[in-house]
């Protein structure tokens, strides 16, 4: 039994998408996610899907990797889709299966909501796949820094996120080790009903929690020893700079948005 880690799963192909400024990627992906909610016709959804496919192509990330990254939410996707299909009523009745009625509106909702959710997940996944975690946290710090004057600890937040991402592989390795250790003493993680299975996780969670405390303590010492005193007076090794490529990307996005609006109004 292994823990699959999908957060912060950077896949470096050195494509033009990878080289874009992370702030642009984050902003555009947020704008795109909002746009997804305005796509209420088949044409608009196809338009959205085309953009995502183009981005996947440009990022040179194999489709298989993208699909693997969204697999954990697949179950939820299907479940939400079926809920819509069965419980949204309206328009002509298309099928009658005993107590369940599938209506035209239900079918419509099934397509719209399932794909809408899929688009959101793919858009987010693309940012994670094409941006290394350090760039992601640097971008966050840079974007939040105007709020620093209002008392928001922008540097501290991004440092926390960066450390959290850094420790994901450490903890997943450790969880695996604890599971093996407990299994070797006869713990059985594979059988039993749901409640029994949840209970079985206690002997994993407790040592994992204890070790995370130890890691935190050691890390704090190591950071102190390397003169960490917070964000003030700190310089940056990585510099974020908007270049021509980023401007071009923004222009393309703006054109994309205008076409979207036109399609929305005239169709």
């Amino acid at each position: 039994m292994a823990f699959k880690v999908t957060i912060g799963q950077f896949y470096n192909t050195k494509s033009i998408i990878h080289k874009l400024d992370p702030r642009i990627k984050i902003l555009v992906s947020f704008a795109f996610m909002v746009l997804v909610f305005f796509a209420d016709s088949i044409v608009l959804n196809v338009y959205i899907a085309l953009a995502l496919l183009a981005l996947i192509y440009l990022s040179k990330v194999p489709l298989k990797v993208v699909l693997k990254a969204i697999r954990p939410v697949f179950f939820f996707l299907v479940l939400a889709g079926l809920m819509n299909l069965f419980f949204v009523q309206g328009g002509n009745v298309l099928a009658n299966l005993g107590p369940i009625t599938i209506s035209e509106a239900g079918l419509n909702a099934f397509f719209i909501y399932t794909f809408r959710f899929l688009f959101l997940v793919v858009a987010g996944t693309l940012v994670a796949l094409t941006t290394n975690p350090i760039q992601l946290t640097d971008a966050l710090e840079s974007m939040l820094s105007p709020l620093q004057k209002l008392g928001l600890p922008a540097h501290e937040l991004s440092m926390m996120l960066s450390i959290a991402l850094r420790f994901i592989p450490t903890f997943s390795k450790e969880a695996e080790r604890i599971i093996k250790a407990q299994s070797s003493r006869g713990a059985d993680f594979e059988s039993g009903n749901l409640i029994e299975r949840v209970k079985l996780f206690i002997p994993i969670i407790v040592p994992l929690f204890a070790s995370s405390m130890r890691h935190a303590d050691n890390l704090a010492n190591a950071m102190d020893a390397r003169c960490y005193t917070g964000g003030e007076g700190r310089t940056h090794y990585r510099e974020l700079a908007i270049d021509k490529r980023d401007i071009t990307a923004l222009i393309i996005c703006a054109i994309y948005l205008l076409v979207f609006i036109a399609l929305k109004i005239y169709l």
């Binding site: 912060g8 290394n132 975690p133 350090i134 960066s162 450390i163 991402l165 850094r166 450490t170 130890r214 890691h215 050691n218 890390l219 010492n221 190591a222 950071m223 020893a225 390397r226 003169c227 960490y228 005193t229 007076g233 700190r234 310089t235 940056h236 090794y237 990585r238 510099e239």
Partner: peptide, 30 residues
């Protein structure tokens, strides 16, 4: 100071950036 647990003194997820952590804290020019 170099500590006992190799894992617990790495701050970031790229080697170069981790090495830069100390100088960054000291405010050394880029």
């Amino acid at each position: 100071m170099v500590f006992q647990y190799p894992d617990d003194q790495m701050v970031t997820s790229v080697v170069r950036d981790d090495i830069a952590f100390g100088p960054e804290n000291l405010g050394i020019p880029r």
